[in-house]
Nucleic acid binder design. Structure first.
Length: 868
RNA sequence: GAGCUCGUAGUCUAGCUGGUUAUGACGUCGCGCUUACACCGCGAAGAUCGGGAGUUCAAAUCUCCCCGAGCUCACCA
């Protein structure tokens, strides 16, 4: 009866599906992961990456956030008061696109559009929150944030106001990537390059004051002639040395411009002479700034020539044709070559893919350039795990030469909370108490421009770059501007940890270091843990276009969170990590080559294909097996707990038998290593130690060596053996809780809760070393285990089944005290199954019959004689 | 094109402040149901550490070159 009960509680396999849901709600009800600011221990704050609200987590998130959860659980166990909130990054173009597509609402219907954006984001957040829970994520949701919340926007806008008052935020006309087809400026991330067969025109420009002398430039954009503001040659170019300060006449424009020298000119391209226009490319922009050149804009926002051009009203393409024609008539075209080049296009919108122009438009900027040394200092003062990624940030900071354009011509984002005078450009700032606000809706503090008295005051329509939002996450979670006490405790006086991927070191980490330092005077982080990218089985980053994507939803239902978290723990710090799978034939379970799979994918219908083939996730299979192993080890203890009545699991360490002494001290050693590795966030190596220790030592050797005592006639032996095993297994279970929270909790609730009394194993502390283990006993235990391993090996060699009894074994030991060995004869006899075992210290004995095996075990200085 | 990181058995991975038979996992092979676990136990095979050169008594480990991968930046008139 008792046994049946035990079996229903403890089936042969760990049924994670039933268990996970139960514990997720239990943890929430009991407030197991609640943060208590008055709690014990120094506060350790984790500034987790807010995922963009795409609606679903991918394996990259799983890796990243599993590690973060390890950090949180580990530090909590080590006695820190861990503050572990999780937020969401809400703003972004994909939201706008989704709303346009799914609801068919246009951006122009601003109010309704924004409403739908919020609605869409909220749906996605609820789904992603569930996914985090399913992963066993130990965040305290009461402290979550969303960058679209009024409260969050308030902080962002307040930070902008502060930056403006300090003079670090300014509005300026600056060339931006502009799609004249979509009539909007676009972020750098939205443009790409496309190879195209173009032409290179060689155009003669007459030199001023020298009759019939020309200099020839090569250009792919002849239509930009009228916007030319300078001509450049390389300072070391002997061919043009004499022209260094000359002036050229611009045909059609009828202006003259100077020739200048600059190292950025490629002498080998074209003629080695290039003209600088408003704006052909980023070099043009750089030169404009470096040499303070004029700005002559000739394009309109919808891709036509403007009033500064003689070709006004023509499209850019038409103008090009016309100009080339006119130049030809003037005899100024030297030659035309065909030319392969990459043109910059609006690549992120597949329906557009038209060329991008650099148009000067009014933009908001944050001055970063002047603060790079401070950022570098902040980065240098942090502990980096691993160290190697620090270089990424330093290189970026040192090489930065432009300020940060923070305005985006979008709708769903944090509004830039200013107004400006359309006459004179005067900025009107809001009052702090009115934040957060949308200047498009709210009226300005004054209806007249304080500078020029104009009444054309316009609310800024642009919204912030998402990094403006996310670069204050450490402040937002610390209730900056909201609760001074909380802020001091969780930011100023806390140890603040920043976990993230290396791909956003130059953005998120960089901007956060900068902004938080400027806003609070204190560098935000003490340490950062950097994870790599999750790759597909082909080693390439997971991407739909490579067809190597695995979604957590593909694997979580089949393997469970504890298995996926083990996969995460096996990734090495700071490096890319592949998620392995092989295609197998469902019928014969044999692996199938990629070529065959690709062929079959094309030939078979999707339905048929998935009936025939499936992916096999070897890493997860390995992880599941470990869970089964853990499960059965505790199941075995539980079976015996149901037979042997004990009221506590206290053990007297000093009086542990040899085998227990040995494994208890092994545990101490393993824990010391694991602790050091965890301290360095080296999950991978720690797990590589824990897994074999548990499996090969505690299960295969320890349990096997003591299990016979569970059936002893002596009640004290039975009870002590069980208590000793339960205690040791409990210590390691607590650590498993960090990586595998569900199975640990389940086992705890069945086996240990009555003895320990805590609501959850996740309230436990890091196990202390077992003190006072007898060194002598430990050493003896080591010998016993070693002898057992050898004897098993011999049994295998002689092909004797493990359950078959050996008639006689004589062990000749040179170095040991025979009296001690007497204590362990029973251990060996019972575990290895030997009828007649003797341990002797004399010289080599002689036997009537030849032993079936005689082996020397060097490390023990022992000789073993075995008679089947 | 530039910078950074990486390239170890069939697959993934440890070691990489130079010095034992290069670690572990999955897979493979042989044998086996020890009062838990066959998703298991015992044992075995399998890597000249991407290629080449150099430094050294000694290199997976340091230096240089080449090849390949990933990320970031630039893609030029």
């Amino acid at each position: 009866m008792v046994n049946n009960m035990a079996n229903t509680l403890f089936p042969k396999r760990f049924k994670f599906n039933k268990v996970q849901k139960k514990w997720i709600s239990y943890w929430r009800e009991k407030g197991i992961y609640d943060f208590d600011i008055e709690g014990k221990g120094k506060i350790f704050s984790i500034d987790t990456p807010p995922p963009f609200v795409s609606g679903t987590l991918h394996l990259g998130h799983v890796l990243n956030h599993s590690w973060i959860d390890f950090v949180a659980r580990y530090h909590k166990m080590k006695g820190k008061n861990v503050y572990f909130p999780q937020g969401f990054d809400c703003h972004g173009l994909p939201v706008e696109l989704a709303v346009e597509k799914n609801y068919g609402i246009s951006k122009d219907d601003r109010e309704r559009f924004l409403e739908k954006c919020v609605e869409w984001v909220e749906d996605n957040i609820s789904n992603m929150t569930k996914q985090f829970d399913d992963l066993g994520y130990s965040t305290d949701w009461k402290f979550t944030y969303r960058t679209m919340d009024e409260n969050y926007k308030y902080k962002v806008q307040k930070s902008l106001l502060y930056f403006y008052e300090k003079g670090w935020l300014y509005r300026d006309k600056f060339p931006t990537h502009f799609c004249v087809n979509c009539e909007t400026s676009v972020a750098k991330a939205e443009v790409g390059y496309q190879e195209e067969e173009g032409k290179l025109w060689y155009i003669k420009l007459p030199l001023v004051g020298r009759d019939d002398e020309y200099v020839t430039i090569a250009t792919t954009r002849p239509e930009m002639m009228e916007s030319c503001v300078g001509v450049f040659i390389h300072p070391n170019d002997d061919r043009y040395y004499h022209l260094s300060a000359a002036e050229v006449e611009l045909p059609i424009a009828n202006r003259t411009v100077r020739i200048r020298t600059d190292n950025n000119v490629d002498m080998t391209f074209g003629t080695g002479v290039v003209y600088c226009c408003t704006y052909g490319d980023e070099t043009d922009i750089k030169w404009k700034l470096d040499y303070d050149l004029d700005e002559i804009q000739i394009f309109t926002k919808n891709g036509l020539m403007n009033e500064n051009s003689k070709y006004q009203e023509l499209s850019i393409e038409q103008a090009r044709e016309k100009i080339v024609n006119d130049l030809e008539v003037m005899g100024l075209i030297e030659k035309i070559e065909t030319h392969e080049h990459n043109i910059i296009i609006h690549s992120e919108r597949s329906s557009c893919r038209r060329p991008i122009e650099y148009l000067p438009v009014d933009q908001w900027f944050i001055n970063v350039k002047d603060f790079t040394t401070e950022i570098i200092d902040s980065a240098e003062s942090m502990d980096w795990y691993p160290e190697k990624h620090k270089q990424r940030l330093l290189d970026w900071a040192e090489g930065l030469d432009w300020n940060w354009v923070i305005s985006r011509q979008r709708v769903f984002g944090t509004p830039i909370p200013f107004w400006y005078c359309s006459e004179c450009g005067q900025i009107l700032i809001p009052e702090s108490k009115d934040l957060p606000l949308d200047p498009v809706i709210e009226s300005p503090p004054s209806n007249k421009c304080p500078n020029c008295d104009s009444s054309n005051i316009i609310g800024e329509e642009d919204v912030c770059d998402c990094w403006v939002d996310s670069s204050i996450t450490p402040l937002a979670i610390a209730k900056w501007l909201e609760d001074d006490v909380f802020f001091t405790k969780t930011y100023t006086n806390a140890r603040v940890h920043r976990p993230q991927g290396y791909e956003i070191i130059r953005t998120w980490l960089f901007y956060t270091l900068f902004r938080c330092k400027k806003l609070t005077g204190k560098a935000p982080f003490h340490e950062t843990m950097i994870n790599g990218m999750v790759a597909g089985p082909d080693g390439r980053k997971m991407s739909k276009s490579y067809g190597n994507v695995v979604s957590p939803d593909d694997v979580l239902p089949e393997y469970g969170a504890d298995a996926i978290r083990q996969w995460a723990a096996m990734g090495s710090l700071g490096d890319d990590y592949p998620f392995e799978y092989n295609w197998i034939n469902i019928h014969n379970k044999q692996p199938v080559s990629d070529e065959k799979i690709n062929k079959e994918k094309k030939q078979l219908s999707e339905d048929k294909f998935f009936k025939k083939y499936r992916k096999r996730y070897d890493q997860l299979i390995g992880a599941s097996r470990f869970l089964t192993k853990i499960w059965n080890a505790y199941r075995f203890l539980n079976i015996n707990l149901n037979k042997i009545e004990i009221t506590d699991i206290n053990v007297n360490i000093e009086e542990l038998p040899p085998i227990d002494s040995y494994f208890y001290s092994q545990f101490n050693e393993v824990m010391a290593k694991v602790e050091e590795l965890f301290d360095n966030y080296n999950w991978h190596e720690a797990f590589m130690i824990l897994r074999p220790f548990f499996w090969n030592e505690l299960c295969d050797n320890y349990i096997e060596a003591i299990k016979y005592k569970f059936y002893s006639d002596d009640e004290t032996i039975r009870k002590n053996a069980l208590k000793q095993a339960l205690t040791l297994f409990y210590s390691i279970l607590r650590i498993f809780g960090i990586i595998m929270p569900f199975i640990s909790e389940e086992i705890y609730s069945i086996l240990y809760k009555d003895f320990i009394g805590l609501d959850s194993i996740h309230q436990e502390t890091w196990p202390k070393n077992f003190q006072m283990i007898s060194a002598e006993s430990n050493e003896l235990g080591r010998h016993v285990i070693s002898l057992m391993k050898s004897l098993r090996k011999f049994k295998s060699k002689l092909q004797i089944p493990l359950n078959q009894e050996i008639n006689k074994v004589v062990i000749l030991l040179k170095n040991d005290n025979q009296n001690q060995m007497k204590n362990i004869i029973d251990d060996i006899k019972q575990t290895i199954r030997i009828k007649d075992l003797s341990i002797i210290m004399t010289e080599e004995p002689s036997f009537k019959a030849q032993p079936d095996l005689k082996e020397v075990v060097e490390e023990l200085d022992a000789t073993i004689f075995l008679f089947k």
